[in-house]
Design a protein around this nucleic acid. Sequence first.
RNA 1: GGCCUCAUCGUCUAACGGUUAGGACACAGGAUUCUCAUUCCUGUAAUCGGGGUUCGAUUCCCCGUGGGGCUGCCA
Length: 485
Amino acid sequence: MRTRFAPSPTGSLHVGGLRTALFSYLLAKKHGGTFILRIEDTDQAREVQGASEHFVRMLTWAGMPPDEGVMLDEAGTLIEKGEHGPYFQSARLTKYHAAVETLLKNGHAYHCFCTAERLDAMRQRQQAEKRAPMYDRLCTHLPKDEVQKKIEAGEKYVIRLKVPDENIVFSDEIYGKLSFKAHTIDDQVLLKSDGFPTYHLAHVVDDHDMRIDCVIRGEEWLPSLPKHLILWKCFGWDVPKYAHVPLILNSDRSKLSKRQGDVSVEAYVEKGYLPETLVNFLALLGWNPGTEQEVFSLPDLVNAFSLDRVQKSGAIFDLQKLSWLQGQWMRKIPLDAFVARIRPSVEEHYPESKDDPNFIKKAALIQERVTFFAEAPEMLLYFYREPSVDMEIVASKKQKIEKSDVPKIVEFLKKTLEQIPDNAWSTEAVQAALEAQIPDSGFKKGQILWPLRAILTGREYSPGAYEVTGLLGKEISLKRLKANR
RNA sequence: GGCCUCAUCGUCUAACGGUUAGGACACAGGAUUCUCAUUCCUGUAAUCGGGGUUCGAUUCCCCGUGGGGCUGCCA
């Protein structure tokens, strides 16, 4: 099974593009096949420098680097690998020209010398008459010698497909039976006047050359499918399977666009989403496993994926579910990997954390409270810096603590904690000591633990009082208590 | 306008003629707990409308309605 992802290097990778790539990747891997990256750079005007490299980087980030076609070598330079290249369409011009020659020779295509002005006027007229804008085939009737004369005179021309008069019926892997009426299909331009092919020609020639078994692309291509089918037939080549994937939508159900949020994969990378999160989320957007499992790693997906469980209708990109999945994946990360990921930024904020023997324990406390790695330094602040403590927070009304009680509570905490020997200090020891003494203190557990936590962290919300006290150590804990008598 | 296409809770979706229409996110309650987060339990919430076919339609067919895509010498 050979599949491909074939983006146009006109900008950064779109989340919809990544999902199309994901489905292609999954289908290939499901069958032990090959996932190919081809670059469709036939529009010179719209090309963006560095886009191809960017695609490879994003695919690699997501865990699905191409097996064949355009990729990066160890040194990070863009290379092509594979027997069916070149994999940049701009390097395949002779192949397209040869294909066009066959079409011309067999009468499936013709030269068209119509100017942009004439075409514009024609379309306007058709619109005004409430007819579908289509090429009127003026140049189909040009005699051969006149065509020759015009070419020799240096007149600009394009090559158009001569659409035969027969209806098209086809079965898409996702949509099922599809039908198109012959007279609604336009004589598509195949070769532009600059000598470059249009998408339509290049797609068919390349997917044939590259032995693609299943073409997976966005639903927006559905209306031009009949043109492609006609081309396969004109060339006499076996038609691959086609799977058109439904669109990803904005919350107002329009095609996902930049105005309403982030559409580039890079934006999600920068925000700190894990590749696992985005891949998992995108897979579930339009596909379901048929079971109640929701959390899938890439290998899980390879195992479970099939095209027949892909949805036909577009799906709204739901940030809330994405965020929930991020939480799921954050908590799934092994502790040592989590530590490795937050370590650099934490050390940058608090250089002393580098020599902290309890760093791992502190990291463990925040792992289930963190959505993005970048939150870690802020969440660990009170371990490495003196927090400013607000008496309004310490004397919490919700915990039924009066300001006048605070000195007594602090006194109790000091007395109890001081009893713990320096070398026996630990979360467990703190817990044992406090729980043994609280019943006789005249206060409830919450009236004791809330102020302790608030004084040590300066915050309303944080990991538990025992854990914080245990990890902060006896000296600092008592120092902060004394400062807030 | 024309062509193609889609349609189940707010959102993502399951149910390929017979279910009290299921799950997840979100939301609301509750449990656990010193707070937050996590976890667990409970609840609110959907088959676009109208015709057929059938003993029986979410499911099959037709017609509406609504949405989306395409309608470029862009992809």
